[in-house]
Amino acid sequence: MKILVTVKEVAEAEDDFEIDGLDIDERYLEYDLNEWDDYAVEEAVSIAEEGDDVEVVSVTVGPERAEETVRMALAKGVDRAIRVWDDDLATAEMLDVGAKADILAAVVEEEDPDLVFTGVQANDDAFGATGVALAETIGFEWAAVVNRLDLDVEGGVASVHRELEGGVDELTDVETPAVLTIQTGINEPRYASLRGIRQAQRKPLDVKELGDYGLDSSVLETPVSRTAMYVPETESDATVFEGDAEETAGQLADLLRDKGVVEG
């Protein structure tokens, strides 16, 4: 069995930042493995550990900088990694959902996995759409926002819990092959061990261009563009308690007593 896990290196903005044009100034961004993808990696790796002959391959679309993130996935137990990047991708203004799905679909066609795991969404732009769009493109069945997975490999069924709003899970049986978008909390992602990190250096990490998959820059054409980015006007009209911790705690204590919700 083969599991393909899509991973994304995401940018997080520092508390204080400046906007430069249509994005946050690079100086104020820190990069890391997308939180949801960390859970997707763990889910795939733990299935591989429990089963016989399960290969876990990760794929990312991203620049050379993203290799750090990819190596992290390898260190956690992914067997092999693919990074798709070329000049056309580097100069694309925006990778919209359709473009991502088309690129990943080409990778799926080449790799022929039984399961594809994606994170529910990415920390940075939070579109939350790539996994389901990919499933439709490649003709796989799917389930979005999975927080529990029981796999019946021989029966070709993934029994999942989908985390709905309001503390309710939906129980669904999904035919495989399938794309599952993995929710945080489904497992406990491991930390990479030193041994894992050493091993990761020797694991294959192939860099592919769009052309390697028979794609060209037309796959990146999109009617969707970002035309503005700005800091929303603060709506805060909070009363700020000033002073050292004892003083602010004292003011808060007075407030709670005034409200009559505490004794003492």
């Binding site: 959902v97 359709g98 939350g128 759409a129 389901v132 439709e136 389930a143 009617p223």
Partner: peptide, 17 residues
Amino acid sequence: LDYAPAVAERLGVPIVT
């Protein structure tokens, strides 16, 4: 989010979430 992206993809139209 469990069906909107699939509908968009099937119709070949963009999606903004």
